[in-house]
Design a protein around this nucleic acid. Sequence first.
RNA 1: GCCCGGGUGGCGGAAUGGCAGACGCUGAGGACUUAAAAUCCUCCGGGGAUUUUUCCUCAUGUGGGUUCGACUCCCACCCCGGGCACCA
Length: 842
Amino acid sequence: MAEHNPQATGSGYDPQAIEAKWQKRWADARVFESEADPSRPKYYVLEMLPYPSGTLHMGHMRNYAIGDVVARVKRMRGFNVLHPMGWDAFGLPAENAAIKNNTHPRTWTNSNIAEFQKVLRRFGFSYDWRREISTCEPEYYRWNQWFFLRMLERGLAYRKKSRVNWCPKCATVLANEQVINGYCWRHEDTLVESREIEQWFLKTTAYADQLLDDLKLLEGGWPDRVITMQRNWIGKSQGAKVKFPVADVPGAGSIEVFTTRIDTIYGATSLIVAPTHPLLAKLLESSPNRAEADAKLVQMRQSSVKTEDLATAEKEGFFTGRHASNPFSGEKIPIWVGNFVLMEYGTGAVMCVPAHDQRDFEFCRKYGLPVRVVVQPLEGEPLTPDKMIAAFDEHQQGKLVNSGPYNGLSPDDAIAKMTTVAEQKRFGSGEIVFRLKDWGISRQRYWGTPIPVVYCPKDGMVPVPDKDLPILLPPNPKLTGMGESPLAATPEFVNTTCPKCGGPARRETDTMDTFVDSSWYFYRYCDPHNNQAPYDSAKVGYWFPIDQYIGGITHAILHLLYSRFWCKVMRDLGLITHGEPASRLFTQGMVLKGGVAMSKSRGNVVDALEMAEKFGADTGRLYTLFAAPPEKDLEWSEESIEGSWRFLNRVFRLVERHAQSVRGTNRGNFDIAKASEKEKTLLRKTHQTLRRVTQDFESRWHFNSAIALLMELTNEIYAQEPLEEGMRPELRKEVLELLTLMLAPMTPHLAEELWEMFGHTEGLWKTSWPAFDSDLAREEEVEVVVQVNGRVRGKLKVPAGLAENELVTRAMAEHFVTQHSNGKRVVKHFFVPDKLLNLVVA
RNA sequence: GCCCGGGUGGCGGAAUGGCAGACGCUGAGGACUUAAAAUCCUCCGGGGAUUUUUCCUCAUGUGGGUUCGACUCCCACCCCGGGCACCA
């Protein structure tokens, strides 16, 4: 089809007119506005708020179409539904666009918001627009500042000099979660550098245990893979920290290692520290290997910047010339530097047990260090130093050898006993180590929330008092995109007075990571215009937790971890009582074109507004729901969308043809006993469809198969045309109205229009989801599949509910059975009522 | 390397241990039309037999297994996608 022309379908279906008409009516009747009402059951359904950039494409649209189906179904089922929308409006693209076009980030952002809003309204999504929020507005970000101050009071926000991830293109710091394989999450081609800067952190690690433990509460409600990803990210390891005194440098103290296998400590044949270990300078001072060591260190530190191939990199190391003593055995073992030991994890030093760890083994083999077996399996061949072991998972079945007083113990017993001994003798302790690190939130950019502290020469760092919030962004910043925060170059912002002493002071010039904005935005929807508090706890108490959260898998860690953290902090502040923000999470698939996700930079976006103009919003919605199950990726096809368009036209023509003749009758007012064959056929099909569509909407979210069922029903109605012959108007109405109601959550505008055509003066939005009638859905005659030895050999039309033995008798008389049983006897049979009979012959 | 997903016609996909390929797209043929569009009808996994009609057979990544019966459950392997990754 070269050029699409809606008028050419020969039907009166005009989506542009219909959709505008109903959008206005919904708005006038305030259909989607809802208020907290404890007398009614609530349902909070939410799609992740978009970053308003570029065009709103069909990828966005699919996300919102899914949420809108859920919102509309729940409304039809009597829930008080909260379904809001807003804008994740701070962020770098706005600032970069402003620099490029010499405008203000606000200008760019607000015009994008206006565009996005126009498109979302064009699609008729059932949002309560009164609750719209934009995170770049002071009414919103003042509460980011407020929360920050509360965290500061509790020691959950702190400042420290630290080595950070720095993206040269963003010209700012990135959180660990924003570094993907050593590259910036926004610039896939840009390696992240390492810099040392004073930074603000939020203490996510204070909640590491809760963030991990509470994942259990989400099981069943959140996708397993998201839970797994978070669990891995938090990365809890139970083990012990053990101090190895440095033997040959007086005053050097000891080196602490972290291990999960303290039971193998007698097998440690060396101690390996990270190239950036703080004690290294002291060890190498006056070391015989000094010059050689320094050269290697420089080399090692340089190459360790490239984290992307760390995992596959060759193990490198060198001997420091120093030794440490094993606190259990007193044995002197050499101290090495190894490139595979990470300063960021554990203590930055490991004991090297080559017999029971793959990495240690590789390292020792390369450098000729000895291998000593200290755990032997209970059964089978004993291990020898020549044989690679690393039998980590089997340590439960082993017993200790070469381990002094601990010989013969099981590894588990040894871990318990040795940890106790280490604690008693004060050279070690049982420890839990997390991979999760604190959340670095400082960003050296303009378009974000100013961090509300000032620095006073006299009083040091002073928090801004609540009454002075919000700290507003200066209206006319100098944006360069380079170096220091633009706020630092804005004197009217920087120069202030100390809240404590009144003397001159400087403001903090960093802004907050935009993930702060999205960490609690869904609470603000409950009470979006509150200027006394972030929100009213009673309102949040009614709506929360979110019943259904919907968004992309890309946020499995970043946003979804931060917002879980924020929720727990707010609970500890006494603002809320729940511990998890969303009880159910759905991660929808992406919309692809040419096999890759739509994005402006790739130039493969399908503009949602263009689709609406071409086919109408309802066709666009229907297609994204029909083309694939919602959790799977969907390859966009311009050809396939025509099928959805054709289907809606078929439905429209059908109702157009019959609406007039069924007006004035009441659906449901009929006597099925007196029904004709045609009536029974269609009523049965309709109620069977209703039963399955209801299931698909309620539990399985198989919108694609629900639509297929509605297509089948429509095809069946067409097959029974002309309906007027042998079908009473009230039954025609029943069939057509149920079809309309089932379509309503997905193609709401068309459904309203059809509803009106039936003669209803009240909007469909006031109608409940229909209940299916199991009596009507029941078949009178069924087709039973007959198998012989598990192979289909024929079918029998029999009355529904026919008794098992009767069916067997009938089947055995059939030619197709005798032919395939070859005179053998039926020794057994299996029967599924009204469905299947399997005769086993032998 | 480890952990999740997934693999079904030309394509998107359906089938919650019971007829594999629903529904849609594409394609082919036909009806209507001066013509086109739209609409409507028929056909559309492979092989074979019968060439009206129907029947047989193979087929859901590969190989095994459980079962009366497996796309579905179990084991092993291959491939694709995603996540994590010298995490001590």
